[in-house]
C-alpha cells in the first residue's frame, strides 16, 4: 500500500503502509535434492537429455524441448572450470530485503566438457575487468560453511552457500569467436 509521511498530523491521509507477510514452505523435489546432495560433496551435476543431448544444470527431471523425462540414469558430473560467455553488471536497486549495496557481476558460463550455467557470481576480479572469454573455476565454500539452504526448486544459480562463485584461473582468454553465441 502507499506510504505516507506522518510528519504533519493535520495533513489529509492519502495512504497507509500495510506490510503483508505470507510464508511459503516448499519441499525440494527429488532431482533438486540430488543436486543439493551433490553440492554438499563438491560435485556439480546435470541431466543430459537422451534425445537432443542438451545438458541441464540444475537438472529439471525432464527436457523441456523434447518433453521427455530424465532421471538418475541421465545424470552426469560437470567440470568445475569454464569460460564466461556473457555477463551483467548490476547496480543494485534498494528494495525491501535487498542486501547488496555495491555493483556486482553475474555471468553465463560455458563449462569445459559441456554444460552451461547462468547468473553466476564472479569473485576475485574487479567488476570492470569482467569480460567475455574470461577463464574461471568454481570456488567452494569451506566444509564448515557449506550448506544448501539457498537451493530451491526454482534455483537458477547455485547458491552462494555451496559454490561461493567463480574466480579467474589466470589462463589466457578464449577468443570470442570460439565461443557459442547463444548461451542463455
Amino acid at each position: 500500500m502507499a506510504e505516507s509521511q506522518a510528519a504533519d498530523l493535520n495533513a489529509p491521509v492519502v495512504g497507509m503502509d500495510y506490510h503483508m507477510h505470507v510464508q511459503y514452505h516448499e519441499v525440494l523435489c527429488p532431482v533438486m535434492r540430488e543436486f543439493a546432495d551433490a553440492l554438499m560433496d563438491k560435485r556439480l551435476i546435470g541431466h543430459k537429455c537422451p534425445q537432443c543431448g542438451l545438458i541441464y544444470s540444475p537438472p529439471k527431471g525432464y527436457c523441456p524441448i523434447c518433453v521427455v523425462p530424465t532421471d538418475k540414469s541421465h545424470e552426469l558430473e560437470l567440470q568445475q572450470r569454464g569460460t564466461v560467455t556473457n555477463y551483467t553488471i548490476v547496480t543494485p536497486v534498494q528494495y525491501h530485503g535487498q542486501e547488496e549495496t555495491d555493483r556486482f557481476a553475474k555471468a553465463s558460463l560455458q563449462l569445459d566438457g559441456g554444460g552451461t550455467l547462468s547468473l553466476q557470481d564472479l569473485l576475485e576480479i574487479p567488476v570492470d575487468d569482467v569480460r567475455i572469454g574470461l577463464r574461471v573455476e568454481a570456488v567452494w565454500a569451506s566444509d564448515a560453511e557449506r550448506n544448501v539452504d539457498e537451493v530451491t526448486n526454482r534455483s537458477w544459480g547455485i547458491g552462494e552457500s555451496a559454490i561461493r562463485g567463480w574466480q579467474p584461473t589466470g589462463e589466457p582468454d578464449v577468443p570470442a569467436d570460439e565461443l557459442p553465441t547463444n548461451v542463455f
Partner: peptide, 11 residues
Amino acid sequence: WGLAGGRSGGM
C-alpha cells in the same frame, strides 16, 4: 521486490 522473488540480489 516482486521481480527478485522477495530475495536479495535481484537483478
